[in-house]
Design a protein around this nucleic acid. Structure first.
Length: 350
DNA sequence: AAACTACACAACCGCAATAAT
DNA sequence: CATTATTGCGGTTGTGTAGTT
């Protein structure tokens, strides 16, 4: 048996709100508040509306200090950065943009921002293609490998929470990523805390142990402050903690293979048949499916196969951060996920 | 000017989480 | 602890409008 409906659907008005309805709702809430019960509210006011509808109308349109339209470049950057980092968690993203609603941001992303981003990435892809034809790629790959080796050595030597770590000139694994700098680490860090994620540790316990030195956490949720740094992504490598000596090594990962060319994939996504994409991306659903399994208490029901093509995008952009973040949300942090290497990569759009 | 199309935004729906009983 | 009600969230759909043919 399903749940009882929250209201009598037959006697409830749907569709756009009239100015009169808006005025009634606004006036009542401003004088009396919501009373903590949206379901009862429309009856009190005399509105033939569902309580959910009233709530939505108030939150998205009527409440004070709501901004509509006119997103700034800075807001664009924040939205893109967060989307790439945490996916379509619009409420969390909205919490970082005062006056913006999750609905507004969601609409803005779906109708404009992702297209803007795609256009940009298409250009970059063309540039990249030209360089490939000039045999430039070989040099890039060579340099990238050298950088990765250097990074592994550096990361193994320096605790990630030390100031020295954050000042290291870490390599950029893909030349095209040089355009994407991390510009909002502090914001992301704050939002994690602001969204009641206290008690969460974003990197695994093994990793801490391996460093033979406890980070200066004041509580388990402390995320290293990484502001004003540019963080390369290492999404094509995964940190693996050895059972024998707890050492951390960075190995190429099939799970994340292909992510290193994320901007290109992002662009291609809209060009590829969605079914082909589903098949080709099966191996990339790791993070999202795991999340769903966990959130369903272990059931095997997943949403990834039900996604739209842009839903599939989630499995593409779900970085290890997200799996860890989700795992943490469920109070079940994963083992082989290293938050500080993989997360916090943001996009800066020019 | 009418028909059509694309776009932006508002609103709805269903599900999961949370609170209340 | 189990059940039920409510809230919050994200995906999707509906509607109005501007632009194009």
């Amino acid at each position: 048996m399903g749940r009882a409906p929250c209201c009598d659907k037959a006697n409830v008005k749907k569709g756009p709100w009239s100015p009169e309805e808006d005025a009634k709702l606004k006036a009542y809430i401003e004088h009396h508040g919501t009373g903590g019960n949206w379901i009862a509210l429309p009856q009190k006011i005399g509105l033939k509306r569902c309580g959910k509808s009233c709530r939505l109308r108030w939150l998205n349109y009527l409440r004070p200090n709501i901004k509509h339209g006119g997103f700034s470049e800075e807001e664009d950057n924040i939205i893109c950065s967060l989307y790439v980092s945490i996916g379509s968690r619009w409420s969390i993203i909205a919490a970082q943009l005062p006056g913006r609603t999750d609905n507004d941001i969601k609409n803005y992303w779906n109708t404009r921002l992702k297209k803007k981003l795609l256009g940009k990435q298409r250009k970059e892809q063309q540039i990249q293609a030209r360089r490939v034809s000039n045999n430039q790629q070989k040099q890039d790959v060579k340099r990238e490998n050298e950088n990765l080796i250097a990074a592994s050595e550096v990361i193994n030597q320096v605790p990630y929470w030390s100031a020295e770590y954050s000042s290291l000139p870490l390599p950029v694994t893909d030349v095209s990523f040089q355009h994407y700098s991390l510009n909002n680490q502090t914001s992301l860090r704050n939002l994690m805390v602001n969204n009641k994620l206290e008690g969460i540790r974003f990197s695994n316990d093994h990793h801490h142990h391996q460093q033979q030195q406890q980070p200066p956490y004041t509580n388990a949720c402390e995320i290293p402050s990484l502001s004003n740094q540019v963080f390369p992504t290492m999404v094509n490598h995964v940190a693996v903690v050895s059972d024998e000596n707890n050492s951390v090594t960075y190995q190429p990962s099939n799970i994340f293979q292909g992510f290193e060319n994320f901007p290109s994939d992002f662009c291609e996504l809209v060009c590829v048949n969605s079914q082909q994409m589903d098949r080709s991306m099966e191996g990339f659903n790791y993070g999202k499916e795991s999340v769903d399994v966990m959130s369903n208490g272990g059931s095997t029901n997943t949403t990834s196969t039900e996604s739209t093509s842009w839903g599939d995008m989630n499995s593409l952009v779900y970085s290890p951060l997200v799996s860890d973040y989700e795992g943490c949300r469920q109070g079940n942090p994963r083992d082989v996920v290293v938050f500080e290497e993989c997360n916090y990569f943001g996009m800066q759009m020019q």
